[in-house]
Nucleic acid binder design. Structure first.
Lengths: 237, 237
DNA sequence: AAAATTATATGATTTAAATCATATAATGCC
DNA sequence: GGCATTATATGATTTAAATCATATAATTTT
């Protein structure tokens, strides 16, 4: 027998509502939001949007992990941000009415909503709360970017590598074993975030492994000695 | 005889109104703005605000140049942004309700307004246009920061140095001679922006000078061969 | 104006990290 | 399953850039 009741997969129960900037909206506003969004499933490695493209709306990550990358000099990739479920993506170009200056690529299979551009603008104009949430998000990303600038400017590769592992842990957390970082990146991708060569990245991970700071199993990295890793990253506070 | 007419030094005629995010406000709104701002004069080298401080309002640069710096590891200074007249400063911490994560220091004598925090929030809530202007500003700063990340990750010091000179030119423009960059930074400050040692910075400027890309007179740097400097910076497009 | 401090300049040396090279392991593919 | 491709690993060499050192020029301070 067919059930004609409320669709359980709607916005009411999705990550976008619970963990994202949209948590400030009330039930009616969320319902309204659902009308103007469309959901899509992406396979690992697919592009959500690409550099120089025009934003059609705001992307909300329902599930899956995404990297924001830009093509630097000689085609070398730079990972600018790492995004997880509940996050919004592509807001910068959208808000400033520009083309994307980076691409978004899924790191694993993902479910992603796109909220229509026009509707998103209406929503933030009519809800200062939502606007402030988006502003806070951008403000946070700006802070992270500027912290990254300081690292790249002042730290050596070993320190940045340790810092990157701590950053991955902070972003994606641990798996059930409480020590394995819950994301799979290639050595090259890690290098593209850290700002080093793939070989140096591999070498340093091996060293950290030998020094029992981390343990390696394929692409999975476990933090074995957090305290020593923090020391290696040379973080203040 | 005393003149009781309109005060000519008010907001109507200041840079903040003309070149800044506030250009979207109408005459009445600007008048209102004036009531809630106070202006102050800063000597070269003075702090406008400092790292970890709490924002009391939004700073608007009437005249003068400002650097935003953060203290990195081992106390090494990092220049994060360079600001000119007409710009707003300190909006990030203010909007996200955080402490400053960088300090603002005047690079020359400056005249700076501060707009009361509460009033600024009221203003952006009541004027979506103003809010969008501020958002665009932050978006721009985020883009610049991420471009800087790519440079620091992928370019060598020589390329970054050339790029920095082009950035200084883009930010502050030329003097009347149409080739001297209109800002005076110490070699150390340039190094703190480029992410290199003071010695390397001095050496590279000397080299550029010998190679007739630039010419040096004290802290004043003139771009003699723009085309070659762009090549040295290795900029695409 | 002289002394002291700080900024700029340049040479010599060291070092971190990139590059080059090659081997092995893992993954995708017909 | 076996072949091809890509990813990881590690050694050897080179190179860019930091560091150390010292000198001179330019500011500040007294």
């Amino acid at each position: 027998m067919k059930n004609n009741g409320p669709i359980e997969t709607g916005c009411m129960h999705c990550n976008v509502r619970l963990n994202s900037v949209f948590n400030v909206l009330d039930e009616d506003q969320v319902k309204d939001l659902c009308i103007h969004k469309s959901c899509a499933v992406y396979k690992k490695g697919q592009y959500v949007f690409t550099e120089n493209g025009l934003p059609a709306g705001l992307f909300c990550i329902n599930s899956g992990k995404i990297k924001l990358t830009t093509t630097g000099y000689d085609g070398k990739e730079q990972i600018l941000r790492l995004v997880k479920s509940g996050d919004i993506v592509g807001y910068r170009a959208l808000l400033s009415n520009e083309r994307y200056h980076c691409s978004a690529v899924t790191l694993e299979d993902a479910s992603i909503c796109i909220i229509d551009k026009k509707y998103f603008f209406d929503a933030i104009e009519s809800s200062p709360k939502l606007m402030f949430e988006v502003v806070k998000k951008m403000s946070q990303d700006l802070k992270v970017a500027e912290d990254h600038i300081v690292s790249l400017s002042q730290k050596n590769v070993r320190e940045r590598m340790a810092e990157a592992l701590l950053f991955l842990k902070a972003t994606y957390g641990f798996e059930e074993d409480n020590q394995t970082i819950n994301v799979s990146l290639s050595r090259e991708e890690i290098a593209d975030y850290v700002g080093t060569s793939t070989e140096s990245c591999i070498r340093l991970l091996s060293e950290f492994n030998n020094d029992k700071l981390i343990s390696l199993k394929g692409k999975k990295i476990s933090i074995v000695n957090l305290q020593k890793l923090i020391q290696t990253a040379n973080i203040e506070d």
